[in-house]
Write a protein that binds this DNA or RNA. Sequence first.
DNA 1: ACCGCTTTGTGCACGTGTTCACAATCGCGT
DNA 2: ACGCGATTGTGAACACGTGCACAAAGCGGT
Lengths: 226, 226
Amino acid sequence: MSVTQLPHRGTRRGAISEVTVARLPVYLRVLTGFAESGVATVSSETLAQAAGVGPAKLRKDLSHLGSYGTRGVGYDVDYLIYQISRALGLTQHYSVVIVGVGNLGHALAGYAGFGTRGFRVAALIDADRSRVGEVIAGVEVRHVDELESIVAEHEVSIGVIATPAGNAQEVCDRLVACGVTSVLNFAPVVLSVPEQVDVRKVDLSIELQILAFHEQRKSVVTEGAL
Amino acid sequence: MSVTQLPHRGTRRGAISEVTVARLPVYLRVLTGFAESGVATVSSETLAQAAGVGPAKLRKDLSHLGSYGTRGVGYDVDYLIYQISRALGLTQHYSVVIVGVGNLGHALAGYAGFGTRGFRVAALIDADRSRVGEVIAGVEVRHVDELESIVAEHEVSIGVIATPAGNAQEVCDRLVACGVTSVLNFAPVVLSVPEQVDVRKVDLSIELQILAFHEQRKSVVTEGAL
DNA sequence: ACCGCTTTGTGCACGTGTTCACAATCGCGT
DNA sequence: ACGCGATTGTGAACACGTGCACAAAGCGGT
């Protein structure tokens, strides 16, 4: 999973907490699965188990969006999907640019999650001119020199950085300079951005290291049991 | 960033908390950068800024591993790198298998973070026989039928799942059945695993949706300011 | 040897997130 | 119309993470 890079900007009154927001997409996915299976209503018990959380936490999370369940019955699947989508802002449409068309950028471009649910990949951007013009998953690769004009033209609000670590900050600065206010960073660096920009970081190496820690803990425990 | 899928298994006495463990790899990376720049000692102030956290939090995190700083001076970069590495269990070696050689599996195989720091990719595994034998980033692709024997032979403890969503749970079950105790899941599903297995999840779509939420919040605020 | 400057390590207070337990509420059968 | 079983929504207790503020402790200059 990924972690926010910046400390919480003061939580507004009545706002949904950050941890809750992070869980809503999971509920949404599970609910979509139920909907496709033809399930019409779910209890917090069932939904919570499918999402891997406790029922109480689930109900409290959902209660922050409003009272969309009916007591004694549960939640209407379709209606809850709509409400969560709305709370997450998925009823609007967002244009995304992916900068860096290496292996990772390639994978991201092909990722199904991008096309659906309100996200449209406006362009793939790379510094290597030999890749420019190539079409990946229906999207054209364009040169990084055009970054500013692409962002302006498509009203891009979300930038995905999949460049090598060395270029990430520069790319980020350029994105921010032309109005991008959310950044998803795959490069292994800590980006510095102005206050109002949100950065989320996905870092392979960090995930592995966290797993390594738990592995080690397990072996120590096992030793201790001998 | 990514998130643990399961609730905290009871925190052991004297253990390092989960949030701290998640930050240690960041400190480690920043420290490595300092070391390469020839910096010998850093203060909590400097290190914290580079890592994007507050100085107090940083010191408290580090204090959980022991007293490795010297007052009035700061932390010895090399020594601290060693201590964090040891705390994370990176002084040991871990064998990893990557299951699913699509775009994402390809990207992961090529990712530099895997080769270094105690992680060795034992094999790439795919269900498509036409890919078997291919060599990616110096690692051979082998068929999923051999999964169990590969895991046993290389004493694999960490499995990376980069398969389509539909196959993820099955692959996970097989990995767990032959002794893998840590799983890094890129497939957009909630895996169910036995108690002692750690699962971490990296989910593109979830990250985007979280960013979408913040984007929406910003535009609402902007509207309100008109 | 001492003093003052710097920086760590940490006790304490605060805020946030989680869990429990239960009252409020709904549908349904009679 | 009414009562019963089921399930939500939530107040209150609790656990955990964060940030402040300061005492403890090292270094260097005199």
